[in-house]
Simulated assay, not measured.
Amino acid sequence: MAARTGSTKTYAVARALRNELQRLDDAMSLRERLRPVQVRVASRPATGLDADKAFYDELSGEG
Protein backbone atom coordinates (compact mmCIF):
# COMPACT_ATOMS: atom_id res chain seq x y z
CA MET A 1 0.00 0.00 0.00
CA ALA A 2 2.83 2.38 0.86
CA ALA A 3 4.50 1.79 -2.50
CA ARG A 4 1.26 2.18 -4.44
CA THR A 5 0.29 5.41 -2.67
CA GLY A 6 3.80 6.84 -2.41
CA SER A 7 3.54 7.14 1.36
CA THR A 8 5.51 5.80 4.29
CA LYS A 9 4.81 2.38 5.76
CA THR A 10 3.74 4.04 9.02
CA TYR A 11 1.21 6.23 7.22
CA ALA A 12 -0.06 3.28 5.17
CA VAL A 13 -0.63 1.16 8.30
CA ALA A 14 -2.32 4.05 10.14
CA ARG A 15 -4.57 4.69 7.15
CA ALA A 16 -5.48 1.00 6.89
CA LEU A 17 -6.37 0.91 10.58
CA ARG A 18 -8.51 4.05 10.30
CA ASN A 19 -10.32 2.58 7.30
CA GLU A 20 -10.97 -0.69 9.14
CA LEU A 21 -12.29 1.12 12.21
CA GLN A 22 -14.57 3.20 9.98
CA ARG A 23 -15.82 0.02 8.29
CA LEU A 24 -16.63 -1.50 11.68
CA ASP A 25 -18.41 1.67 12.79
CA ASP A 26 -20.45 1.76 9.59
CA ALA A 27 -21.49 -1.86 10.19
CA MET A 28 -23.03 -0.97 13.56
CA SER A 29 -26.70 -0.10 13.53
CA LEU A 30 -27.81 3.35 14.57
CA ARG A 31 -29.39 1.78 17.65
CA GLU A 32 -26.04 0.22 18.65
CA ARG A 33 -24.18 3.50 18.12
CA LEU A 34 -26.71 5.51 20.14
CA ARG A 35 -26.94 3.08 23.07
CA PRO A 36 -23.94 4.52 24.99
CA VAL A 37 -25.46 8.00 24.69
CA GLN A 38 -28.84 6.74 25.91
CA VAL A 39 -27.22 5.07 28.92
CA ARG A 40 -25.28 8.24 29.78
CA VAL A 41 -28.38 10.46 29.51
CA ALA A 42 -30.51 8.03 31.53
CA SER A 43 -27.91 8.01 34.30
CA ARG A 44 -28.38 11.74 34.94
CA PRO A 45 -30.68 12.64 37.82
CA ALA A 46 -34.00 14.27 37.01
CA THR A 47 -34.06 17.99 37.83
CA GLY A 48 -37.73 18.09 38.69
CA LEU A 49 -38.09 21.22 36.54
CA ASP A 50 -40.71 21.57 33.82
CA ALA A 51 -39.54 22.42 30.31
CA ASP A 52 -40.41 25.95 29.22
CA LYS A 53 -42.57 25.17 26.18
CA ALA A 54 -42.88 28.81 25.11
CA PHE A 55 -39.09 29.19 25.15
CA TYR A 56 -38.51 26.08 23.02
CA ASP A 57 -41.35 27.03 20.65
CA GLU A 58 -39.69 30.41 20.12
CA LEU A 59 -36.31 28.76 19.44
CA SER A 60 -37.85 26.50 16.80
CA GLY A 61 -39.76 29.38 15.17
CA GLU A 62 -43.16 28.13 16.29
CA GLY A 63 -43.82 30.85 18.83
Rank of each mutant, 00 (worst) to 15 (best):
L17S: 13
A3Q: 10
L49S: 13
D26H: 00
Q22G: 06
F55A: 15
Q22P: 05
D52S: 13
S29R: 11
E62C: 01
L34M: 14
S29Y: 08
L59D: 09
V37L: 05
A12M: 09
R18S: 10
E20V: 00
D25C: 01
L21G: 07
E62R: 12
L59H: 04
A12P: 08
A27I: 01
K53T: 08
R44Y: 01
L34E: 10
L59N: 07
G6N: 05
L21T: 01
R44L: 02
Q38N: 06
T47I: 06
G63C: 07
S60L: 15
T47H: 03
Q22V: 03
F55K: 10
P45G: 00
R44H: 06
R23E: 12
V41E: 05
E62N: 12
Q38V: 05
R40M: 05
Q22F: 12
S7Q: 15
K53G: 00
L30F: 04
L34R: 01
S7L: 15
L49K: 12
E20F: 06
T8K: 10
G61P: 03
M1L: 14
M1Y: 10
T47F: 03
K53W: 06
D26G: 01
A12G: 03
A3W: 06
E32W: 04
R40K: 10
E62A: 14
R44N: 02
A42Y: 07
K53N: 04
P45A: 12
D57N: 11
Y56A: 02
V13H: 03
G48C: 11
R23Y: 01
R33M: 01
G63S: 08
A16W: 09
A2H: 03
G63Q: 09
R44G: 00
G6H: 05
A12L: 06
S60Y: 09
A27T: 02
E62M: 09
R18N: 13
A16E: 14
R31T: 01
R35P: 02
E32G: 09
V13P: 00
D26Q: 11
K53E: 07
N19W: 06
E62S: 08
A12S: 14
G6I: 08
Y56C: 06
V13I: 12
M28H: 11
R15I: 05
R33I: 04
S60N: 14
P36R: 02
M1Q: 11
D50N: 13
D52G: 03
A12E: 02
Q22Y: 10
A16C: 11
A12F: 02
V41F: 08
R33P: 00
A3D: 08
G61E: 12
N19C: 03
M28W: 11
M28Q: 13
P36V: 03
R18T: 12
R18E: 13
D25Y: 00
E62T: 08
R35Y: 00
A54L: 15
L49V: 14
V41N: 04
P36L: 05
L49R: 15
M1S: 15
V37E: 02
R15A: 09
T8Q: 00
E20H: 14
T47M: 00
G6T: 07
S29V: 09
T8H: 05
R23M: 14
Y56H: 14
A54K: 14
L17Y: 13
N19I: 11
N19D: 13
R35D: 03
R35I: 06
E20M: 12
T5D: 06
N19A: 12
F55P: 04
G61C: 10
Y11Q: 15
L30K: 02
L17R: 15
